[in-house]
């Protein structure tokens, strides 16, 4: 299967296999009108199987969303068909307005304008807790 190389845009590579659909939605790629390719289960020497997303436009993307959904992803910025920047994305230390606290007793339930902030409390377990009430983020 071939997908054309993009001229100017972003390639999100080494996504954990099966996570591209969630990432596509969380990054709001469904709202773009440029071509977007989601390629799943691509053989990878590094991780066995991986997903790739190619976006045919240089848009602003939230790297924390990528790091949260699938850490160790590589984001390649393409200009004139050449990779001009390669960024390795790790699990972010802090998430702001990416996930919401579900604890009904949390202050965020009554103060609607407060940002929903989660802090990485255990890197190995990828565990995040609400900044305000310490409730564990549920995936």
């Amino acid at each position: 299967m071939t997908v054309d190389a993009i001229k100017n845009g972003i390639v999100i590579d080494h996504i954990e296999a099966g996570k591209s659909a969630e990432l596509y939605k969380m990054l709001g790629l469904d709202k773009l009108d440029c071509p977007v390719a989601v390629i799943q289960n691509v053989p990878s020497n590094k991780i066995g199987k991986k997903d790739i997303i190619k976006i045919d436009a240089n848009i602003e993307i939230d790297l924390d969303v990528i790091g949260y959904i699938s850490p160790n992803v590589t984001v390649n910025i393409i200009e004139n068909e050449r990779c001009v920047e390669k960024r390795h994305i790790e699990l972010p230390e802090r998430l702001t307005n990416i996930i919401r606290c579900r604890n009904p007793r949390c202050i965020t339930t009554t103060e609607q304008e407060l940002p929903h902030v989660f802090i990485l409390t255990n890197r190995e377990k990828r565990e995040y807790r609400c900044l305000y009430c310490d409730t564990k983020a549920s995936k």
Partner: peptide, 10 residues
């Protein structure tokens, strides 16, 4: 004192 968790932090 506040009934909501995290209010004093805010």
């Amino acid at each position: 004192r506040h009934p909501k968790e995290g209010a004093p932090l805010v």
